[in-house]
């Protein structure tokens, strides 16, 4: 693919539009400053089409103009997730056709960690970032054990509930507690289940490195910014792989 410029109404015109706020009172100097910023962004000539004071100390600008940069799609690198993102409907339908029953998810904060923010954001119907949690998915049965659950308790609940997946959240990272707890957890599950029967193990928290799954003995690590649909989609992907 060849080099591209943005498109306004004519091929190659390079037109873009940006809006931003500068922390200064509205004046001719402020409009000049806005044009200067736009030009530094590569917009030349920058056309400040709108400037509006917001209180005494801020001004909002809308700027149009041609950008001198080119883009080359052939050298764009993206990190592709290795499973497709599904809608809630698709998750439900695929769980139904793969398992012919509800998928059981057991979640907990283990160790002394009392921060249920993460596990609740993923599991509670209220969800996170405008997205509903796993409880919202009709074909998922969610058992949220809450905070400060011991590893033996978690294993016992996973057995009792016949869990297909176990979600563990770790927020506290003092003295690498999150890593130690996760390793203890994955070892306990390996001991309690034959490999084919072991629930899918997922751990998440703001300080985890997503590439550490193998080292920690879990199936997947989720880091900051993970939303419920990421987790649901991964679960479907993994269970379909197991079933096939």
């Amino acid at each position: 693919m060849s080099l591209l410029r943005p498109y306004g109404d004519t091929t190659g015109d390079g037109m873009v539009q940006v809006s931003f706020t500068l922390p200064m009172a509205h004046s001719k100097v402020a409009e000049g400053a806005a044009a200067q910023l736009a030009e530094k962004m590569g917009i030349q000539p920058a056309l400040v089409v709108h400037a509006k004071p917001m209180g005494p100390d801020f001004t909002f600008f809308v700027v149009y103009g041609p950008v001198r940069h080119l883009v080359d799609p052939s050298v764009v690198e993206v990190v592709e997730r290795d499973y497709p993102l599904l809608t809630a409907k698709e998750v439900n339908a695929r769980v139904k056709s793969t398992l012919r029953r509800r998928l059981v998810v057991v979640g907990a904060c283990i160790g002394t960690d009392a921060h249920t923010v993460g596990i609740d954001a993923i599991l509670n119907i209220k969800g996170f970032a405008g997205e509903k949690g796993l409880e919202y998915y009709r074909e998922l049965k969610v058992v949220n054990l809450g905070a400060q659950v011991s590893v033996p308790d978690l294993v016992a609940h996973a057995i009792e509930e016949k869990a297909d997946a176990v979600l563990v959240s770790q927020v506290v990272t003092q003295r690498d507690a999150h890593l130690l707890n996760t390793r203890e957890m994955s070892a306990a599950f390996r001991e309690a289940f034959p490999p084919a029967r072991r629930p899918v193990l997922i751990v998440g928290g703001p300080r985890f490195d997503e590439s550490m799954a193998a080292e920690l003995g879990v199936d997947r690590v989720f880091a900051r910014g993970t939303t419920p649909v990421d987790v649901a989609s991964f679960l479907v992907h993994r269970l379909e792989k197991r079933a096939s």
């Binding site: 809006s19 931003f20 706020t21 509006k52 917001m54 801020f58 909002f60 405008g130």
Partner: peptide, 11 residues
């Protein structure tokens, strides 16, 4: 669903 509101968003 994008950002927590900016000053300009609120305005």
């Amino acid at each position: 669903a994008v950002v927590t509101p900016w000053l300009s968003d609120r305005d």
